[in-house]
């Protein structure tokens, strides 16, 4: 069996395991919903990483998607409408910002994204009368495709949507990365000039990936808003962006399963770190990240893939 087919199998197995865990432990269902949502956002980060570009500001789109849900929910109280609305909002904003930032590379790309997310963060606090500042906005109970749901069913539905979106975006990213557009991304990382010689615009290649990543982050934000039912500006703070890059490396940028492995691990480590030492969770997460980078550079997916390949060879 090739690694690509094993990946598919693992994805389905993983999805099954998540459903089982959520069934047996009610509180895990929420944590896993958040993990899946963050995994989707990290998938977008991974697309940009393929081009060697790190966005230190993608929390901007997560927060944008979340606030889109919070603002639209009173007039459009249905998850089936809010999710596309959030995706559309972030895609439009992502295109506008992408046109600007896709001219820049490396540190400038990263820092511009960081700066714009910090401007957005400041705006959420400044326009206090609309955004309620740090108090944040409560998301009212939502219907799903016209159905009114009780608490438990609602939680299951959001979990289900998150899982479906994760599988859908994952499959899409796989196809995308294998396509010429995806291959061109890798070329930006190695030698961008060569793309120009071939008549391919590196800027449009990067822009396309950027808009995709913004949209994914927006969907993630919408899911987080629907699950937590309360959004605050902290979603767009630079440490939240750092967290997404953190998860990308933790999971491994080598395959589309990486972001989800990373996100689930990250959330679980954080929960257990918080339960063991409530005031030292940051140090524990930092140490985990350090160990991964120093001793397992491919992340969790890298470790897994290596083991699978060895077994395949044997």
């Amino acid at each position: 069996m090739t690694l690509r087919r094993i990946e598919l199998l693992l994805a389905l197995l993983g999805a099954g395991a998540l459903v089982l865990a959520a069934m047996t432990t009610p509180w895990l269902k929420f944590v896993l919903t958040i993990a899946l949502a963050k995994g989707i956002a990290v998938l977008g980060i991974m697309l940009l990483l393929r081009a060697g570009q790190v966005s230190f500001g993608h929390a901007l789109y997560v927060a944008l998607g979340a606030y889109a849900v919070a603002f639209l929910a009173p007039v459009l109280p249905d998850a089936a409408l809010l999710l596309p609305a959030a995706a559309l909002t972030t895609a439009v904003v992502g295109t506008l910002i992408g046109l600007f930032v896709s001219r820049y590379r490396e540190i400038f790309f990263g820092m511009l994204n960081l700066a714009l997310s910090m401007v957005f963060y400041s705006m959420l606090e400044k326009f206090y009368h609309y955004t309620k500042g740090t108090d944040g906005i409560r998301v009212p109970p939502l219907t799903v495709a016209g159905l009114e749901l009780d608490r438990v069913t609602h939680e299951w539905t959001i979990f289900g949507i998150a899982l479906a979106l994760a599988l859908g975006f994952g499959a899409f990213a796989r196809v995308y990365l294998a396509s010429p557009m995806g291959q061109a991304l890798t070329a930006i990382k190695t030698r961008e000039t060569r793309l120009d010689f071939m008549g391919v615009s590196a800027r449009s290649v990067l822009l396309a990936a950027y808009v995709l990543s913004a949209t994914m982050a927006g969907c993630a934000g919408a899911l987080i808003a629907m699950a937590t039912r309360h959004v605050t500006p902290l979603l767009s703070y630079w440490t939240a962006s750092g967290e997404l890059v953190f998860i990308a490396i933790l999971g491994g940028a080598g395959g589309v399963l990486g972001p989800f492995l990373g996100a689930v691990t990250y959330e679980l480590v954080r929960v257990y770190a918080a339960a063991t030492v409530a005031d030292m969770w940051q140090m524990i997460l930092g140490a985990v990240l350090l160990l991964v980078i120093l001793f397992a550079r491919g992340g969790i997916w890298g470790l897994l893939a290596l083991r699978l390949q060895r077994r395949g060879a044997a």
Partner: peptide, 22 residues
Amino acid sequence: FFVDEAPGIDHLVGEFRRLVQN
């Protein structure tokens, strides 16, 4: 059982559920 509020609402709400349900 102590929970840190600093990491943000998604973590806090998750911990709130864990403490109540688990």
